[in-house]
Design a protein around this nucleic acid. Structure first.
Lengths: 136, 136
DNA sequence: ACAATAGCCTATTAATTCGATAGGATATGA
DNA sequence: TCATATCCTATCGAATTAATAGGCTATTGT
């Protein structure tokens, strides 16, 4: 299940990508337009900023703006930052790998095999989708 | 993220599918072999039974056994019973649809579009994978 | 018949995660 | 220097998940 954090983050990014100019947009504006809790969105935009997607400006006329071209923002990276692992089980995750407590041998695990397939397919989609695709 | 319930359920089903005979296997045996909490597994097998995948026998020599041919058990149905929706957001779920609170127009929602793609891909895998595939 | 076995069922608890909120600190522009 | 808007940390409440407890019921072997 996709967390609200990720969902809201994607919506906010889409909102910014759809702006004509690159001038800053206030949190408040996005939060009202997209029906997202003001404070919650604040924290999400902050992590997007810390990860290099957004720039910000304080004070009057301030707000957030995209730092990169929407064509250069891949879903894989956004997802990993907001949602965490793309895989459905940690033992199959490329970036957040963790061994299962119960599984003595991953290669023999039926769940492992299945989840690798799912991961590869999902990854393929995320790799081939950019923010530009979302905003069209 | 896949729940332990689903993971354990799949492992138990795989275990039963790998049995040579169709004679009942005790919960205890599966739980020890697969390192699953005895009581937790008990409740999982019970729901699998209630949904027609497993049969059971009480008393000495009792246990659980597969009711269907592993080739006839699709991942789509197992997943939906154990995990619930296959989609990452309810507004994109075929069997567990729910409207989003924040979204006035699904068709215009960027997240919606993306998640439909992911759902279709995952579904395709689950549709084409049976318990027999897992146990090989 | 009856004791042992093993699944059936309901309820509760412990732990974790998630979504949201609060409140002040900091930087910017008029 | 005041108003504005982001930055930062901490916390809270609700929901979900994983696990446990304990008694009930049906079946089998002696």
């Amino acid at each position: 299940m996709l967390s609200k954090k990720t969902k809201y983050g994607l919506k906010a990014l889409t909102y910014l990508a759809r702006q004509d100019s690159k001038s800053p947009v206030q949190i408040e504006v996005i939060s009202e337009s997209e029906n997202i809790s003001r404070k919650f969105l604040e924290s999400i935009l902050l992590t997007l900023k810390k990860n290099g997607f957004l720039g910000s400006k304080k004070g009057k006329g301030g707000g957030y703006y995209l730092l990169k071209d929407p064509n250069d923002i891949k879903m894989t990276t956004v997802m990993r930052i907001l949602e965490g692992p793309i895989a459905m089980v940690p033992c199959v995750s490329l970036n957040f790998y963790e061994k299962c407590d119960d599984c003595p041998d991953e290669k023999a695990c039926s769940v492992h095999k299945l989840m690798i397939k799912v991961r590869d397919n999902t990854l393929e989609i995320f790799r081939n989708t950019t923010l530009a695709d979302l905003s069209n």
